[in-house]
Amino acid sequence: MYPTTYHRPSSLAEASRLFAEAGDAAYISGGHTLLPAMKTRLAAPENLIDLRHVPELRGIEVTSENVSIGAGTTHHAVSQSGAIRQAIPTLAAMAGTIGDAAVRTLGTIGGSVANNDPAADYPAAVLALSGTIITDRRTIPADAFFRGLYETALEEGEIVTRLSFRLPEAAGYAKFRNPASRYPMAGVFIARHRGGEVRVAVTGAGNDGVFRVPEMEAALARDFSAGALKGITVSPAAMLSDIHGTAAYRANLVGVMARRAMENLGSAVAID
């Protein structure tokens, strides 16, 4: 790791000011993506601004309409939250499948969403649950937030402060894990919202990051059952292809995981 200078702000305003003044800075929260990248010298920010002690990024609030989660909330905290388990059980269960227990102690929801790793779980949840990304500057709907591999609508220095999710009538998540890295090779989050809208979001498989599948959404809006997905495929042309799996393999996995998600509504399944 190249040398870096650590800063620990105690408010959102201080974090933002430090970032602007420091030059070549990166925010760090759980650090479970950034630190590994720094250790391999793929990233080398001269300044690290630690968001773990910023009180504005804390807290879980549940209303009859929404679940709002502070960006600094760890995967462990989301998975164990009684309020989230009751409101959106699939979301809590999904958080409990990220990485391993020690990773979940530190990794945060805000970091995962802001980083937009093409194989992260949270982007699929945010997109399918019609989430809203709240920052220190504005509010961004999920459909306008994710912009390809590791790319988001965030501006330089902008901080994700909260994630807000619409309470669905039903939701399910299924992923097939890479046997070595344990990241999903395809993860499908399906949610049916009040008014009948169905959203299907896929992570891990697409060559441009998380994406929705309109054909599946339309079919499930007519008939919200696993059987309704029969015959619907996604194009291999839009899939990642690497030593772990071809594009055709991943395209097939998307269909299988969508079916598994529908068969496991109210939970999240990680398939090895």
């Binding site: 630190l35 590994p36 020690a102 990773v103």
Partner: peptide, 9 residues
């Protein structure tokens, strides 16, 4: 809580 000490400064 369990944490990986190689992944925190």
């Amino acid at each position: 809580h369990a944490a990986k000490s190689c992944t925190i400064l």
